[in-house]
Amino acid sequence: MTIASGLPVATRRSSDLSKHSAEVFAEAEDHPVTVTRRDGEALVLMSQREAEGRARLLNFAAQLITVTLDDRGSLAERMSKAFPWMLALSPADRESCAQDLVDAARASFSTDQTHLAIAELTSWKETATAIAAGLSNGSAGLEWLDGDETVERP
């Protein structure tokens, strides 16, 4: 199993699981590990977080494929059907969101880094949720920070 282009693939023998299980498990917490067996097909050992991230990415990919197969409306309009929370965004933000999600998905698929697309999806969904809850640039009592500002610890 290839983790990403140019990165080495971690491979262990099945006997390593019995002789050095803590080491193999620690390695699998960081990245998937291919476990080779003499008597059967190789298996992949990975964290539940990694497996769930891959499942979320596949689900997101299925939604994007559905969006791209529809030829009615702009990308943002089609994506708003698949992701109704986008309707809380302004039309301009829907356009930005749609393009950002496609770009993040392409980056995730090409680098096998599931977190890129999932983080972008989560960020836009949380933004839409905040807007729907009445939080916006014009909300009284809120101070918005610029991208380069840092917040000191309390």
Rank of each mutant, 00 (worst) to 15 (best):
R56L: 14
D70T: 10
V67D: 01
A105P: 02
C97M: 01
L116G: 03
L58N: 15
L87P: 00
A62I: 06
R94I: 00
A76M: 05
T68K: 11
G53C: 06
S108N: 04
L57A: 04
F83Q: 01
L89H: 01
R94N: 02
W85P: 01
D93S: 13
S74A: 14
R94S: 05
I118T: 03
L58M: 15
R54H: 11
G53Y: 01
L57C: 04
L58I: 06
L69Q: 12
H115P: 09
D100P: 00
S80F: 03
S90F: 06
M79G: 05
F60T: 07
E95H: 04
R94Q: 06
R106G: 10
A51T: 10
E52H: 11
D100Y: 01
Q63A: 12
A92L: 01
S108G: 05
A82S: 15
A61E: 12
D93R: 08
V67F: 00
S108K: 00
R94K: 07
L101H: 09
P91F: 09
L87Y: 07
L64G: 04
V67H: 00
P84Y: 09
R72K: 15
A107Q: 14
A92K: 10
D112F: 14
V67E: 03
G53K: 05
R54K: 12
D112C: 14
D103K: 07
T114W: 12
V102I: 13
L89K: 00
D103A: 05
A62Y: 08
E77Q: 12
S108I: 00
A76C: 02
D70I: 06
S90E: 13
A105K: 07
T114Q: 13
A51M: 15
R78K: 06
D112L: 09
S110V: 07
A92D: 14
Q63Y: 06
S90Y: 09
L116W: 07
D112E: 15
I65K: 09
A61R: 12
S80G: 12
Q99M: 09
E95A: 04
P84S: 15
I118Q: 01
R94F: 00
F60E: 00
L69N: 10
D112T: 09
L57I: 07
V102Y: 08
A61P: 02
F60R: 03
F83N: 01
A119N: 13
A92P: 08
N59R: 09
A76T: 10
Q113K: 13
N59T: 08
S96F: 10
F60I: 02
T66H: 13
T68M: 11
L116H: 08
L69R: 12
T114G: 10
D100M: 02
A117L: 05
S108M: 03
M86C: 02
G73S: 12
S74F: 10
W85N: 06
D71N: 13
A119R: 04
E52P: 03
G53A: 09
L57H: 04
D103E: 11
L87N: 09
T68I: 13
S74G: 15
Q113E: 15
A98Y: 07
Q99V: 06
Q99T: 08
S108R: 00
A62P: 03
A92Y: 05
A92S: 10
I65F: 02
A92M: 10
P84E: 13
A92N: 14
V102T: 13
L116E: 12
T111V: 08
H115E: 07
W85C: 02
R56E: 14
A104G: 13
L64N: 07
E52T: 08
E77P: 07
Q99S: 15
T114N: 14
